[in-house]
């Protein structure tokens, strides 16, 4: 599966467009991270716990999107976009979407 956020894949042709695929996840951090974060809020600096959370959320959302693409019989997802939003305190929503396509090696 080739996943890119451009509208083309170098060296490949788009044979078929399967349509929009998407994945989203809402994740909350646990209380321990919340407490650590409130200490960080005194002096500033990176909130590693939250960064990890964001990495997990991104992986999960991508995984769901790729599952959909696979079901459609696609072998690539183009023009991938991410959208983030904060729904409520301490929770992060990550939404990812793109166009599932069937790609073929470009004839030389």
């Amino acid at each position: 599966m080739i996943v890119v956020n451009t509208e083309f894949v170098p060296g490949r042709q788009i044979v078929e467009v399967k349509g929009l695929v998407q994945g989203s996840t809402v994740r909350a951090k646990h209380v321990g991270r919340d407490i650590a974060a409130s200490f960080k809020n005194i002096f500033g600096g990176e909130l590693r716990g939250y960064t990890e959370l964001l990495v997990d959320a991104r992986q999960e959302a991508l995984r769901r999107m790729l599952e959909q693409a696979q079901e459609l019989g696609a072998n690539g997802v183009l023009n991938v976009r991410f959208a983030t939003s904060s729904i409520t305190a301490g929770a992060a929503e990550l939404y990812v979407y793109g166009t599932a396509v069937v790609l073929r090696e470009e004839p030389a």
Binding site: V4, P10, G44, T51, L62, F82
Partner: peptide, 23 residues
């Protein structure tokens, strides 16, 4: 789009994420 005279290969999605606290 890539400049027309470029040849590219091995396209893949990359990400970078960070959360920084206020003080």
């Amino acid at each position: 789009r890539l400049p027309a005279n470029w040849h590219a290969a091995g396209a893949t999605l990359v990400t970078g994420e960070v959360v920084i606290a206020t003080d």
